[in-house]
Structures are given as structure tokens and as C-alpha cells.
Simulated scan of single mutants.
Amino acid sequence: MAEPVKTEQPGQPPAAGRSSEDRSARIAVTVFPVIIIAAFLIGFLFPTQTAPLAQYTSIALGVIMFAMGITLTIPDFALVIKRPLPILLGVIAQYVLMPAVAVALVFVFQLPPELAVGVILVGCAPGGTSSNVITYLAKGDVALSVTMTSVSTLLAPIFTPLLTLWLAGTLLPVDAGSMAMSIVQMVLIPIVAGLLVRWLLRSWVEKVLPLLPWVSVLGISYVVIAVVSGSADRIVEAGLLVLAVVILHNGLGYLLGYFAARVFKYPERVARTTSVEVGMQNSGLAATLAAAHFSPVAALPAAVFSVWHNISGGLLALFFRYRSARQEKHDLEVQKAHSNAQ
């Protein structure tokens, strides 16, 4: 779900008339936690029947990334030139803060190697594909969010395997070269293909844009079913521990992303955007990489993250909207008091 709504200008509120693409994206994000929980339960309750799905998770992720590529346009990347500093902050925070938090949690909770690698891999993943819609619902800067997600995703073939090798290489063998090639095949090539399709078949693509959020929802649900089916036994044993680590990882990402932007004196909307971008990870990519290069158990943290970060993202958006409403009410009261004083 790379681009939930078009803005009139980068960083400006959405246009008055919400497009069908916007409505579809908002509905998809609203029901996404329910669908992903159902996928989690299917994989857990029917592991034998759903285990064969694991061999096609890379294809499912490629479809998700292709859909993301179709939603992107040239102005999304032009924002890198127009507003490089907040984008640079967001990308650096993504690939510094989240891996650092992951390593700290692995140390504090003394996780076994397979789960530890899975948590670190989630921390080293790029921004989540649903972060743009959450940013919109949180009244953040949608154009900035789209660009941050796009840039961090395109950098993933470099940073994700190198960071995983550096931070997790002592826990389990990490083939950074093979992982980088997997990311190129599952992420980079599908995104570029999607961009080309958007450019060559623009009129046709406009008709199918409302369906693309559902492609992402179904694709990630497929990955979750496949991953959970391969680690159903360990969920019973370590499920609560993994959930606690995931909740802390995600929550600290939100907080650190928000305050990183505020430290550099960026406005509230940029801080909200950075918070969402840093806190929400591409857990579908992390799960697929973990299952392919390590084990189904290593993919468990990413599967749990897929469920949790979409629930927490919706709650965070509600919190930010509540703050906006209070601020607007306060400003209105100040204006009335000022008018009465005159």
C-alpha cells in the first residue's frame, strides 16, 4: 500500500474529493488487522495443510512490490531533490534506530539465536508498505511518507543484508550476497517493473489503482500463513515472549522516530510521518528473507510484527488525530478570546 492518496502539493492536505483509490486504501487498512489475524490463525491451526505455501512466499512478496511500484510516480522521487533533509533523516533513522533497538531487545531478553536473528532482520528491513495510509490517517505528510518508504525500500538490497551480517553474523551464518540478490529479485525488479507499467499503461493503471491495496493485504496474509505454519510449535513455546519483544520494538520505533524529527526542529506533521515510517517495518520482506535464508522460526518475529504494527499503527493514528482535534479546539478558543478582547 505505497500511495493511499494523492496530494495537491507535496506536504499539503489531501484534496477535498477523495478518490476511489483513497477510499479503498483506507478500508483495506481498517480491516487489515482482522484479515492478518485470520491468516495467522489459519497457519497456526492448520500447519500441515498450509505448509506447502512456503515455497511461493517470494512470489507473493514480488507481487506486493510490483503493486507498490505501480502506485509510484516520478513526483514521488522528485521530492528527494526538493526536500532532501527530512527524507535523509527518515532513512537514517530507519536503518540506524530500528536495528539498534532490535539488538538491544535481543540482549535484554536473551533470545535464542533463531528468534534473535528474526528480530534483528525485522529491524534491518525498510519501511512498511502500509505506513503511507497510516500517515494519512494520522494527519501526517503523505507525500513525504511515500518518498521515505520508496527510498528506504530501494536501498534495502544494500543495507538490509549488510546490517544483518554485521549485527547477526555471530548468531547464525549470514550469506549477505545471497540475501542481497534475493532482495533484488523480490523487491527491486518488481518495483521497477511496476514503475514501467505505470508509465507505459497510465490510463489502464488508473482503473486498477483502487484494487492495489487489497493486493498488498492478500499478499502479506499469504506470507503470514506460510511463515506461521512452519513455526506453529514454537508459537506455543515462545509466542508471548516474541509478542512482548515485537510490541517494544514497534513502540520504541514510533517514539524515537517522532523525537528524532523534533530534535531537528521539524514541524509536527513531519514528526508524525517520521514516527510512522520508523516504527512500521516491511515485515513481509523480513519474514520471507528469514524463512528463505534461516528458518521458519526466524521468520516468526516478522509474522507477529505483521499483525501488531498494523494494529498499533491504527491506534497511533487515532492518538495523533485526537491531538490535532484538541489543538484545533484550543486555537479556536484563543481566536475567540482575542476577538472578544478587541
Rank of each mutant, 00 (worst) to 15 (best):
V5W: 06
E8S: 07
Q9P: 02
P10S: 02
G11W: 02
Q12G: 08
G17W: 05
S24V: 07
R26Q: 12
A28P: 03
A28M: 14
P33E: 07
A39K: 00
I42W: 01
P47A: 09
P47F: 12
T57C: 06
A67W: 02
A67P: 03
K82V: 06
K82H: 05
A93K: 01
Q94I: 02
L97W: 04
L97S: 10
P112G: 04
L115A: 03
A116E: 12
L121Q: 03
V133Y: 04
A138Y: 01
D141Q: 03
V142F: 01
L144K: 01
T149R: 05
A156M: 03
P157W: 00
T160N: 08
T164C: 06
G169I: 06
G169K: 07
G169T: 07
G169Q: 11
G177K: 01
L188P: 02
L188Y: 04
I189E: 06
V192I: 15
W199F: 10
S203V: 11
W204F: 11
E206Y: 05
K207V: 14
V208P: 10
V215S: 04
S216H: 04
S221G: 10
V227E: 06
G230A: 08
L240M: 13
G251R: 01
L252G: 09
L252K: 05
L255F: 12
L256Y: 01
L256I: 08
G257W: 13
Y258G: 08
A260E: 12
P267L: 05
E268R: 13
E268S: 13
V270M: 01
A271W: 00
R272I: 08
T274P: 03
E277I: 03
Q281V: 02
S283T: 09
T288E: 12
L289I: 14
H293A: 02
A298P: 01
P301F: 08
A302Y: 01
V304G: 13
V307L: 11
G314W: 06
A317I: 11
F320V: 07
F320E: 15
A325D: 14
R326A: 12
Q327L: 13
Q327S: 08
L332S: 14
L332M: 12
Q335I: 14
S339E: 15
N340M: 14
A341D: 15
